[in-house]
Design a protein around this nucleic acid. Structure first.
Ligand SMILES: [Mn+2]
Ligand SMILES: [Mn+2]
Ligand SMILES: [Zn+2]
Ligand SMILES: [Zn+2]
Lengths: 164, 164
DNA sequence: TGTTAATATGCAACAGAGTTGCATATGTAT
DNA sequence: ATACATATGCAACTCTGTTGCATATTAACA
């Protein structure tokens, strides 16, 4: 199995906010995608976002451009299938999109999800455990880890409960 | 952080299929839940399921009992909040439910998700990497790991593609 | 720089998993 | 057996995401 760690990719891309339209078009062309207004704009916003971003957020940020709701969905699907962005579903049934391989401070670490209140916490201080090579012919581009259980807040509430 | 590995729980429960109503009622009582017909039936089906199960499947299997669709949802939410079952979302926006701590052959291992075709593959031959203790006051009951990338099938299709 | 064929977009209608309000039925403590 | 709290059934609803189709844009090419 080919393991491409997120740290290996896009390392030259420090000046994220300064990523200009020409660079974005280059990314699209490299993926054999037509450079349309919507794709450039959506990708621009994603490149400037520190965390994985919902469709709703993207559409809001682009409302000045007049882009249609459905187009945002279709652009995201296209970018995802081309491997430029990827989708994350963290337990609330809402997709979040992030540029692949970028160091998203809100993303590249394990997450803890409380089964009681549903809150998601970032375990930023803990590195993703390394995954051993597992099979030929599979290209691994991203890895996610979720810990599920009870958060301290809910734990104390449960302790004070006689019955339910 | 308290780490409860799935192997540590429910180890005495080998005779899964034979788990009878009395035992199921005991589980509910222990969680301070009322023993209702719906809860007993839903939990029974879950205990007999080798893999995490959708609401649709559960409702189908229980259609003989006349239980209502909404009740199944509510029972699942109750069981989940009590820590008896947990929810998994594997990328198709459909919840799957599994009894916590049981060795589900379809579940307790990393999973690979192809970003092109969306297919989910079980990496059964690879153990879940151990997670270091990460923080006080958090109770970890389950852990999930997803690898995302391109499956061999899609990789060969992409290779044969000139443009898109 | 036009012309053309492929493909992306806007719009409206739709899909479908899951939720909510409320009247009624059921479980459990006494 | 009674009373109270809570679980259930039913219908209507939410909300994220999809689809069909007519029109607009893109990019290759003359
Ligand atoms: Mn995070
Ligand atoms: Mn599996
Ligand atoms: Zn919590
Ligand atoms: Zn695939």
């Amino acid at each position: 199995m080919i393991l491409i760690h997120w740290r290996d990719n896009f390392t030259a891309r420090q000046n994220d906010a300064a990523m200009n339209e020409k660079n974005i078009r280059a990314i699209l062309r490299k993926a054999n995608l037509r450079c349309t207004r919507g794709r450039v704009d959506v990708l621009q916003v994603l490149l400037e976002s520190p965390d994985p971003t919902t469709h709703e957020d993207l559409h809001k940020k682009l409302q000045g451009t007049g882009i249609n709701r459905v187009t945002v969905y279709r652009v995201l699907e296209t970018l995802q299938k081309s491997g430029i962005v990827h989708r994350v579903e963290a337990g609330d049934r809402i997709w979040r999109f992030a540029v692949c391989g970028r160091m998203h401070p809100g993303h590249c670490h394990p997450h803890f999800i409380c089964r009681q209140c549903g809150k998601i916490e970032c375990l930023k201080e803990f590195p993703m455990p390394d995954m051993p090579s597992v099979a030929k012919d599979y290209t691994v581009e991203e890895q996610e880890m979720y810990l599920r259980g009870i958060c301290p807040n809910c734990a104390s509430k449960i302790k004070n409960l006689k019955c339910k």
